[in-house]
Design a protein around this nucleic acid. Structure first.
Lengths: 158, 158
DNA sequence: ATGGCGCTTCCCATCGTGGGAAGGTCAAGG
DNA sequence: CCTTGACCTTCCCACGATGGGAAGCGCCAT
């Protein structure tokens, strides 16, 4: 099977298959006489595994560990641990975005949105002090602070 | 004021100030005789504006529009529209991440996590069909499908 | 004048993905 | 046999926003 068929069968683009091979996420594929990459069903299966893991948002390095655990028939405890690490990461990112969304929504709610240039959104952007060490609640708009248990997670966008 | 002080006063790193100037998000700063960038209070204020907008997760191109609306004293309707576009974008990303989190959490819940290599997480990764056009509910784990109003938003990660 | 800090420009890396150029291969049909 | 088109190869570039670091110069205090 050539790379095009492997791509269709796995859902991974040919470009990404070559990339995954280059960074060592998947082993180097065999080659035909003319230098074309050749794939077996088993290799396509690995590509499907990687593709599905990407759909879950796993970063490449974590997928590397997952593939290793999978191929090595390791205890499911390890797999679960890696998965839960990723769940925690997802929750962290969800919390950040939720903080932003809530704060911005509050400002937008307070903005009448007419022909006048006066606008609470611009006022916040213009007058908010740069985070000077004190982080708690700094993301929240003035009205209705600390209503969420996940407030203050912004600005740690890594 | 030199770039270091402007950085401290605005919360934007010197590196990023130069970057913003290079891409034209902020106008070119004046220069001292020796070539140092020199900033006025007004320019620092613009930097603060940009910094705060970044904290809200606004991408640079949207900040460009916001700055323009702000400087041009445009009707708040326009500002609100840009802000709500960003809220929609945030909600889209939150929905994607939430889908991933839920699906993965379900698989992890179904994983006993002992010394046995058998694991629902790996089973899903290994046997899930590559998205072949039919997208609805494809992200959901087998148990408890379609329990969320925002299911099926994954794999549109850009 | 010397040391230390700040400023300058320039290049590189991240992370995952796509685009495209330049060139080789293969199969089908004239 | 030759052309055509679809496929494959490698190599380079781009994204978005940010940081790291090198090489070289300016500024100020001791």
């Amino acid at each position: 099977m050539n790379i095009g068929d492997a791509s269709k069968a796995s859902g991974v683009s040919a470009k990404m298959i070559r990339y995954y091979e280059r960074i060592g996420l998947i082993p180097q594929a065999g080659r035909s006489l003319s230098g074309y990459r050749v794939y077996t069903e088993g290799e396509v299966n690995t590509l499907r595994f990687v593709h599905r893991a990407r759909e879950f948002g796993f970063p490449i390095e974590r997928i590397r560990r997952l593939v290793s655990l999978w191929q090595g028939k390791q205890p499911s405890r390890e797999v679960k641990r890696v998965a839960m690490e990723h769940v925690a990461e997802l929750e962290r990112r969800i919390a950040e975005l939720t903080d932003m969304r809530m704060a911005l929504q509050q400002l937008a709610d307070a903005c009448v949105g007419d022909h006048q240039p006066d606008c609470p959104i611009l006022n916040d952007l213009e007058h908010h002090a740069p985070a000077g060490g004190l982080a708690a609640g700094s993301m929240m708009a003035s009205a209705g602070r600390a209503r969420s248990p996940i407030a203050g997670a912004a600005a740690r966008r890594s």
